[in-house]
Amino acid sequence: ALVYVVAGAGVLAGSGWWPTAALVAAAGGLALKAIWFDPWLSVGVLLDVGVIVAVACTWPASVY
């Protein structure tokens, strides 16, 4: 969660390193959810995958 906060601060600051922080946060979240999986975490998996897809597709373009 802390790395997501750092990525969000990077977006607000207009820096160029925030996509890397967002990918690290999403990958870390997916790894933790894979290790300690619970059906209640399914929405979190979808959100992490959504972050990875959004960064890979450079969406939304207004923050790049």
Rank of each mutant, 00 (worst) to 15 (best):
L41E: 07
V53I: 14
G28T: 04
S62A: 14
V45W: 12
A56H: 05
A61S: 15
F37E: 03
A56M: 09
G14V: 02
D38M: 00
G14W: 05
L12G: 06
L32N: 14
G10F: 00
G50N: 08
W36T: 11
A21F: 14
G16I: 08
W17H: 03
A34Q: 06
S15D: 14
G14C: 07
L32G: 15
V5M: 06
P19Y: 04
W40N: 06
G50Y: 05
A26D: 08
V49N: 09
A9L: 03
V5D: 11
A61G: 11
K33A: 13
V6R: 06
A1D: 09
G29K: 07
P39D: 11
V5L: 06
F37H: 06
V11S: 02
Y4F: 04
S15F: 01
W17G: 12
S42W: 08
S15T: 14
W17C: 01
G44I: 12
A7K: 00
A61H: 15
F37G: 03
S15Y: 06
T20V: 15
D48R: 03
V43M: 08
A34L: 13
G50W: 04
T58C: 09
V11N: 01
L41T: 10
W59H: 05
W18F: 11
T58M: 11
A27L: 10
W59S: 13
P39W: 12
A56I: 12
F37D: 03
W36D: 13
T58R: 15
L47D: 11
P60Q: 08
V5Q: 04
A31G: 11
I35F: 13
I52W: 07
D48E: 15
V53F: 11
P60D: 13
A34I: 07
I52K: 00
D38L: 00
V51L: 05
P60W: 07
G8W: 06
G44A: 03
L46I: 14
V55N: 05
V63G: 02
S15H: 04
V3A: 11
G10N: 00
P39F: 13
L47A: 14
P19D: 12
G44L: 05
G50R: 02
L47Y: 12
L30I: 02
A54K: 04
C57E: 07
A61T: 14
A7R: 01
A13H: 09
G14A: 02
W59I: 10
P39Q: 02
V55P: 04
S15V: 08
L47N: 04
Y64H: 06
L23Q: 12
G28Y: 02
I35S: 08
A25D: 09
A7N: 00
T20I: 14
A13E: 13
L32C: 11
Y4A: 05
P60L: 10
V11H: 08
Y4C: 06
W36E: 11
V51P: 07
T20H: 10
V53H: 00
V24W: 08
W17V: 10
A9Y: 02
A22F: 04
G28V: 03
A25Y: 13
W17T: 07
A54Q: 03
I52F: 15
I35D: 14
C57K: 02
A31C: 12
A54M: 12
G29Q: 08
V63W: 15
T20M: 10
A25W: 14
V3Y: 13
